Computed example of a mutant assay.
Amino acid sequence: MHRWLVLGLCALLALLQYKLWLGRGGVQELHQVQGRVAAQEAVNAPMRERNDRLAAEVRDLKTGLDAVEERARSDMGMVRADEQFFWVPGAEP
């Protein structure tokens, strides 16, 4: 009687160990998922930095006129009424 109980418990322990290490949701699958998460984080990092830069630019454009003026000068070549604009052909800005 005791012998069958011990054998049954050993078999149950072996089954549980198998599921823990090799089964669905086990340690092996956990390592695979962690690897995929790390790879995706590496892909997302540059995008996250770009989004942060764009969010900061949007905040600047919403709150201050300096950013709007800088953008108008660089993108559209706008000049204030009290300024003079000199264009030099072939010169880099």
Rank of each mutant, 00 (worst) to 15 (best):
L65Y: 11
P93D: 09
L20M: 11
D66F: 11
P93F: 05
E92R: 11
A81Y: 08
A67M: 13
V58E: 03
E92I: 05
G77L: 06
R24M: 11
D82C: 06
V58Y: 04
E49I: 01
E69M: 04
R71T: 14
G8L: 13
G77S: 01
W4M: 15
E57S: 11
E92M: 15
A11C: 08
H31Q: 13
L22F: 11
A55H: 14
R36H: 10
E69F: 00
Q84N: 10
Q32V: 12
E57Q: 10
W87D: 02
L65D: 13
K19A: 05
A11K: 02
V68I: 15
L7R: 15
Q17F: 07
V68H: 01
E83R: 07
A56F: 06
G77H: 07
E49P: 00
G8P: 02
F85I: 09
R36W: 05
P46T: 00
V6L: 14
G23I: 09
Q40S: 05
Q17R: 13
N44M: 12
V58W: 03
F86Y: 15
N44T: 07
L13G: 04
K19P: 00
E70F: 11
E92W: 07
L12N: 05
M78Y: 11
E57G: 06
H2M: 08
M78D: 04
N44A: 12
R3W: 11
L61C: 00
G23A: 14
L12T: 11
T63S: 12
Y18R: 14
V79G: 02
L30D: 01
R48F: 06
A56Q: 15
L61K: 03
H31V: 09
R50D: 01
A14H: 01
P89K: 06
D66E: 12
L30P: 00
L20K: 14
W21S: 09
P89Q: 07
R73M: 09
A91Q: 15
R36D: 08
L61G: 02
Q84K: 11
A56T: 04
S74A: 10
L7F: 10
G26T: 02
L20N: 12
D52Q: 08
L65W: 13
P89H: 03
E49V: 06
R53C: 01
H31Y: 14
Y18E: 14
R50A: 12
K62Y: 09
E41I: 02
A91Y: 10
R59P: 00
K62P: 01
G26I: 08
R80A: 13
E41V: 10
S74Q: 09
H2I: 14
E41N: 02
L13S: 15
A56C: 04
V6T: 13
W87L: 10
V27S: 02
H2N: 13
V43W: 02
G90Q: 03
L15R: 07
P46A: 00
Y18I: 07
L15Y: 15
Q34I: 05
V6N: 10
V33G: 04
M1T: 12
V88A: 05
L22C: 08
E70P: 02
R73F: 07
G25N: 02
A42M: 10
P46R: 00
E83I: 05
E49Q: 09
K62N: 10
L22K: 10
E57F: 06
R53V: 03
R50V: 06
H2C: 08
A11Q: 10
A39C: 03
G8S: 12
E57M: 12
V79F: 02
F85Y: 02
R24I: 08
L13A: 15
L12Y: 07
R80C: 04
L16S: 10
L22I: 05
